[in-house]
Design a protein around this nucleic acid. Structure first.
Lengths: 166, 166
DNA sequence: TTGGAAAGTCAACAAGTCTGACGTAACTTC
DNA sequence: GAAGTTACGTCAGACTTGTTGACTTTCCAA
């Protein structure tokens, strides 16, 4: 049998146990991934759902509610509650569309931008530290595996954000 | 400015935007990661929490409730409800400890093993496909970044499982 | 032997998600 | 301009998962 710690050697020798370790790595890493923003948000009236909304509104200013719905993959009832509290809290502004008045275009207020900054600084710091610890070669592999793991529909969403942000 | 798509070149040139893409990759990939088991579980009386419990009981047969608690990072009351329904459903067996009668040692029943197999087959298939698509070099990088992203405590948990499973 | 700590259980509550149904305004098509 | 569709909001009810608080049983050590 191949050395299980040597998982990069050959795909033909990827045992179930090795794949399982990848699964567990995802589980534990995701906990770390969300830990810092969760800590920051707790105490405020907001949670992880609010963080996600803030993130993608920041990422795509002026995006509509439906578009956000597609990205986040939740129901509109669920998103609506989140959005409402963000608007009431003065973090997000919803502007009625000029071309299509049914649409609401979402923007972060200065206050919202400040919170976004705080949250993403924390999350980026961890991600950056992980990149640094793992080394430059690992970063590309990391992204490639994650991308291959997405559902096609999500990959589309991800990639369209990708280009927009560069 | 460096080419943003060339993220492996030098850590010094990792822009906030590039790190942000890594964050979004985690978000979308985790959705894919949990999609298959969620789909399988839906309709049964179980959810993602049950999947996690089943996974780690399979991984460490005979583990105690407290140990599972530490791995899953939830309160014992929360885990207890999950465990109770798994036991009532005949998927998990809790044996009173021989040395310490306060402890419950957890095992999967044949039925539990069957479900575990179904769930992890689906999840492994996706992970394996992602590995294959990304290539052997990527796999090592993937694992290294994830590992570096964990909280130290979780990394300990992860690593002790790692050795045990080899 | 007694008192504290640890392991686990029961009960009640909160957060976040979902489905389903309905309402309204605005756009589109005929 | 009437009819149908789209975008968004809201109410109601349920489920999953998480929480805190109070409790029992068991172990261990002073």
């Amino acid at each position: 049998m191949a050395d299980p710690t040597n998982s990069g050697e050959s795909l033909l020798f990827l045992t179930d146990e090795q794949v399982r370790k990848g699964i567990e790595a995802m589980f534990f890493a995701y906990r770390g991934f969300t830990a810092d923003p969760d800590r920051i948000l707790e105490g405020m009236d907001f949670g992880r759902a609010h963080h996600r909304a803030i993130h993608f509104v920041h990422r795509s200013p002026g995006t509509t509610v439906s578009n956000l719905l597609a990205i986040l993959g939740v129901t509109k009832q669920s998103l609506n509650r989140v959005l409402r509290s963000l608007i009431e809290g003065g973090l997000v502004e919803a502007r009625v569309g000029r071309r299509d008045k049914r649409e609401r275009h979402l923007h972060l207020t200065p206050l919202g931008q400040e919170l976004e900054r705080t949250l993403s600084d924390a999350q980026r710091a961890r991600m950056r530290a992980a990149y640094r610890a793992a080394g430059p070669q690992s970063v590309a592999g990391f992204r490639q595996v994650l991308e291959a793991m997405m559902d096609p529909e999500m990959r589309r969403q991800y990639q369209s954000l990708k280009e927009g942000g560069a």
